[in-house]
Design a binder for these strands. Sequence first.
RNA 1: GCGCCCGUAGUUCAAUGGAUAGAAUAGUGGCCUCCGAAGCCAUUGAUCUGGGUUCGAAUCCCGGCGGGCGCACCA
Length: 590
Amino acid sequence: MIPSRLILNGRTIMKQNTLSFEKQLSDWCANTFATCFPDSDLSTFTLGVTPGKNEQFGDYQCEAAMKLSKKLRTNPRAIGQAFIDHAVLPGLIEKIEIAGPGFINIFLKNEGISIQLTDMLTDENLGLPNKGNNQTVLIDYSSPNIAKPMHIGHIRSTVIGNSIDRLYRALGYNVIADNHLGDWGTQFGLIILGYREFADHDALKTAPVEELERIYVESYNRSKEDGTWRDRAKAELVKLQQGDKENRALWATFIQLTLSEFNKIYKRLDVSFDLYRGESFYNDDLAKTVEKLEMAGLSEESDGALICNLEEDGLAVAIVRKSDGGYNYTTTDIATVASRTEEFSPAEIIYVTDERQQLHFKQFFHICKQLGIETKLTHIWFGLMRLPEATFSTREGNVIKLEALLDEAEARALEVVKASSPDMDETQQKEVARAVGIGAIKYTDLSQNPQSLVTFTWKKALAMDGNSAPYLQYAYARIASVRDKYATKFPGINPDEFPIKLTEEQERRLALKLIRFPSAVESAARLHRPSVMADYLYDLSQAYSSFYQNVPFLKAEQGPRESRIRLCTLTASVLKKGLSLLGIETPERI
RNA sequence: GCGCCCGUAGUUCAAUGGAUAGAAUAGUGGCCUCCGAAGCCAUUGAUCUGGGUUCGAAUCCCGGCGGGCGCACCA
């Protein structure tokens, strides 16, 4: 429970506190309700505050009176009145009132808001609480297949997973980012055979992954028509699995070639992993895993295969050992969880994949539980990306390579930069175009609910105005410019020696957005939804742009000028930090 | 057949069961002698359909309609 003197004194002690401002207000509400109704158990209710949606209804609102109405057999307005009668107002609250059916509206004092702002300004973490407390969370994302180029379908797992990674780190979790590569499986028999028979070694040098894919596709097609080819491929696979030196070496080469290409893309996307443990890493655990299942009585024979029958639990049958004795992904994933749990003892393992794998994850999560693995397992899924006319398919030849997407983004951004900053030197123009182009791509993916259908269009992916990364980057760059101008025009004055005073409407609105930053980060992480963060940042930028355009600051007199410069500084810090949580850069000039 | 997801302005997206459904873009009309117009201000325009639960439903439940995905040896 929060020591309410913290806000009763009108001052929070953010740096020593693990609670965001919004959480403190919420706790204050809950405590007040507890005082009002000491005889009732209210612990099952959420009695917190939410940011006000309409200024006339206050800065924060509490809807608890209506929710408690039934339990307390009292009408909501009477509950609200009891709340007001019992409430000891913290110093930063101006007033509270009941409105409508029973909303409790909370109005903050301007000085109260200013204190929050000042606290944020002096905290290098901008008020972010340490929620993780060094608990380990393992995040499994991106996870592309070896020997296939990444196309635009891969960007979502990579970018969304990376943002969740960043959000958790920012909240004090010890994150392990693990790229669970598809580096094992029947396709390698086909690739090895194809490589031996018809590899184009020049192409392997210039575009290795494309060539490997070509080899795979051609070999696959042959295996469908030619039984001999199929048998030979299978023989190569068996040799690989039995540890044949040559095949192992080839396999290792394929991985090396592919990874070096992937790493170029990861570098462009500013994504990095702590581990690159592919499926092969767990290969030796598979037999043991199946043994455990059998011992636990969780598996049974069926048509020559070994299965886990989950039909009683409303799930389909999962095969854990094929009739030819081979293992498949359910087994690998169970082994992976066991290994990760043993090695890292994570509080949670988070998987980020597309929607097609929902059933698979439900199945193996279920089996893990039956095996007694307590680790919290979470599957974050997102909708497949498709083209307006069809889904992607290598066979249709309508895939858009990730590399091409990034190139195009940078090229289009460069046009815009050249048009609006013709005086910038060319190196810098390119550098800005890179940050802006990549930012635009990422933002498009991160700013929407991942679970809805996504249709790829160039127009959408490369949006540069309106609700887009460049809009946020532009806001940031303008502030950077203001800061520089201030320093030149008023040398020797330290804005921090002036208090923050909120006199204009636009300043107050901006300030209210700023103090919500920590709770926005918490929500985004808790819901595993980077879009919550993106929404918040866009909201903040809109508030800033409106402030910027309508309130003079460099031209204001001393006092208000410094106060506003401090608001600008804090906005810049929040934008920079917030965008970094989306993996988006903030150039000082764009 | 069974299961999961989605259906909101012309278009692309928002909205922990909360007050008058927000933005962007496209359209219309304004704002650069003034801190960066990649911007700001104003304006037109939407919850697929029929029931139900609730003080209160875009949101929850049931039934339609439309779209996507998954259901035994690919991951």
